[in-house]
Each structure stands twice: as structure tokens, then as C-alpha cells.
Design a protein around this nucleic acid. Structure first.
Lengths: 194, 194
DNA sequence: CATGTTCCGTACGCTACCGTATGGCTCACA
DNA sequence: TGTGAGCCATACGGTAGCGTACGGAACATG
């Protein structure tokens, strides 16, 4: 049986995923992951064809986890507004654990896995969009607002990474609340001030 | 006169900046920039101490240009609302030319130039924040909204990069208009739907 | 014309990667 | 017990970077 999913292949993927989470795809180096594992390239190239296969495995796992997370977020009971605030809170809470994802948008195209990133992004937009429709926005406005909201989350990640893991000027709960408010609020009819 | 700013040093910085604009700091490689220039490392290491010096020069230039851009944007006449929409439109229009900046947030910490990125980010937030105050928000709310708005712009850049320079699902004018609306709109008093 | 300074090309060493070749260990099983 | 398959370590070749050593060209200037 050639190159089945043996325990070792799984171990390689696990270790690679750990590297990815902290340093992005760029940190998924076969010799480095091998050292984490106490193994050498001899093992790696028996289980995988090349580094791209490992990166692809990492991305499959990432996509699956993100999909699961979305499903769990949608499972949270309550009305649409409650689900919205729960979703924003969950995103804010999980921000520190997504250092790898911050690097993903740029790396995706270079590593040839841009499609997975786009699928996950569109899925996130679609799910958020659906909630916004339930709150009263029409489809296209909801889609636009969902896109902007996702972009805001991604941008905050970027700023946090640039800050280099300091306390977190860009990670507070107040920002999350503001982002939610901006996402669900409509223009007020009478504009104050010119 | 040791290592003055000769024409060649300027040429190295120019060529490095061009590389940065298209491929980020990661694309600023001594030998590659040298090839662009028809020169070799012998020249480089006469004018610069090491690669970090070149990266620092690129960042100085980037920071100066961004500051200039902010000043020009503020110069645009009109009331606060007009300046806001002009600002959003200008940002959207310049998006295609900022492929290097998209990579900057992640690279900044790795290359040790995170401070420049943070200065520019804070400056952008401050300027936008001031406009939002003029439109009627209190200081802290304006600051939060400005942060989210900047994050949204950054996030759209990230999504566009992940898309790998395809037509541009994340670059339309409709999104820009929505982002502006979300930034300046307050909660409507009566919430429709539960 | 001699000499020193400025500037730069070439050659080298070093590290970190990827991928390949090859030999050898271990275990199932005939 | 012998043998083949599965698994892996070691060693090697190759590329892309950074930084250094060194020699030499060009030019000014005494």
C-alpha cells in the first residue's frame, strides 16, 4: 500500500499545522517540522511527495476547522441579533490564536492555495450576510456589509501582527462592540452637522 | 567623506522601493535589486552597511510618502462629510498601487520596522478620527470607528491580494460607499425585527 | 607622472532551504 | 529462518540568499 495515511503522515501534518498556527505557511519547512518531530527528511519524503503536499494538507485541515467553527457559531441559539453579537465576540476571543491566519492572505497566492482562503472568506461572508438579512438588510446591502465586517476583522489582525504581540492596542472588546454597531446600524434620517 | 548620499545610493533606494511596491519588503533582495540596477553587491556594500539599512531607507521613503498623501487628502477643500467621502474614494482608487503595503503588516515585525507601520497607522486613524469628530462623534467613539475603518481598508487589501490580482471582487466602488456609510452612520433608534 | 581616494566587480565562505539516492533497520509471514 | 515490504536516517547535490575580501578601474590632484 503506497503512501497511505499512516500515523506518521498524521504526525507530520500535526506538527506542520502547529508551525503554521504560529508562523504562517512560511514557517512550514520540512526540515524544521522534522526537527519538531525528531524525524528527518527521509521520513517526510516517504509520506509526502514534496513540501506543497504538506502545505496542502495543512490548508485542508485549516479549511475544515474554519468550517466547523462557523457551524458551531451558527448553532449558538438565540435570535439573529444575539447570534450576531455572539459571533463578533467569538471572533474577538479567538484572535490571539490566529497568528498564522494573519499571514495567510499574502502567502496564499505565493503558495498556490489562494482558492482555499477565498472559499473560507466567502463562506464567512455568506454566513454573516445571512444574519444581516435576518436583521432587515436586503441581500446586496447585507453582502456588502458582511464583506466590510470581515475585512475589518482581517485588518485588525494585521495591525495586531504589525504591533508584534504587544499587549494589544487593536484587540480590545470596545473595538469589537464598535465593529458590531457599525455593521448593524443604518443611517439615521436626520444628519447632524454639515 | 564616508558614505555620503551619492547618486548611486539613491539609485539603490529607488530600485529597492520599486521592488517593495510590487512584492513587499521580502522582494527587497540585495542581489535582485542589483540586477535591476545593472550593479553588483560590490556597489551595494559600499553604499550601505547591510540589507537592513536598505530596508530602513525604503521604509523612510514609504513613511514620508504616506504622510504626504495624508496631508494632500486633508488639503482637499469642502466640509467634513465631503472630505470623508473624498478620502474614502482616494483610498479605494489607490488600492491597486499598494501591493507592497499589503505585505507590510506581517513583514514589519519580522524586518524590525514595525514602528514605522504603527506610526503611519496611528496617523491615519488620527486624521480620520478628527473628521469623524467634526461630523458629530465624540472623541473616543470617533477613534474606535476610525480604527475599524482603517482595518476594513487593510482587510480588503488582504482579500484582494489573496485573490491574486484577479479582476477584483473586493475592490468595487460599492464596497467603498458601504464602508463610508457604516463609518458615519449611527444606530437608528427603532430596531426593526428581533 | 605618481599617488591616493572613490567606487565597484569578482570570487569566496556561510547558512538555510528543497529534493534525491541509497543503505539499512524492523517486522510480518511464509 | 529467510525474505520482502514498510519505514526512515544519512549523505549528497543544487539554489538562493547575505556578507566579506580583494583587486582594479577611473579620476583628481599634487
Amino acid at each position: 500500500m503506497a503512501r497511505a495515511t499512516t500515523a506518521s503522515a498524521q504526525a507530520w501534518t500535526d506538527a506542520a499545522y502547529a508551525r503554521f498556527q504560529s508562523g504562517g505557511l512560511r514557517a512550514v519547512r520540512v526540515e524544521v517540522v522534522g526537527r519538531d518531530l525528531g524525524a528527518t527528511k527521509g521520513s517526510f519524503y516517504w509520506h509526502f511527495g514534496n513540501r506543497q503536499d504538506l502545505v496542502a494538507a495543512v490548508m485542508r485541515r485549516w479549511e475544515a476547522e474554519q468550517t466547523d467553527a462557523v457551524i458551531r457559531a451558527a448553532d449558538a441559539g438565540g435570535d439573529a441579533r444575539g447570534r450576531l453579537s455572539a459571533l463578533f465576540a467569538a471572533v474577538a476571543a479567538s484572535a490571539p490564536h490566529r497568528g498564522g491566519e494573519a499571514r495567510l492572505y499574502v502567502e496564499a497566492s505565493e503558495e498556490g492555495v489562494g482558492d482555499a482562503v477565498l472559499r473560507v472568506s466567502r463562506r464567512r461572508i455568506d454566513d454573516l450576510s445571512e444574519l444581516l438579512v435576518q436583521v432587515g438588510f436586503d441581500e446586496s446591502e447585507a453582502a456588502r456589509r458582511a464583506t466590510i465586517a470581515l475585512a475589518a476583522v482581517i485588518g485588525l489582525q494585521q495591525l495586531a501582527v504589525a504591533e508584534d504581540s504587544s499587549p494589544g492596542e487593536f484587540g480590545g472588546a470596545a473595538l469589537t462592540a464598535t465593529a458590531l454597531a457599525m455593521t448593524v446600524s443604518r443611517d439615521e434620517p436626520t444628519s447632524r452637522l454639515a
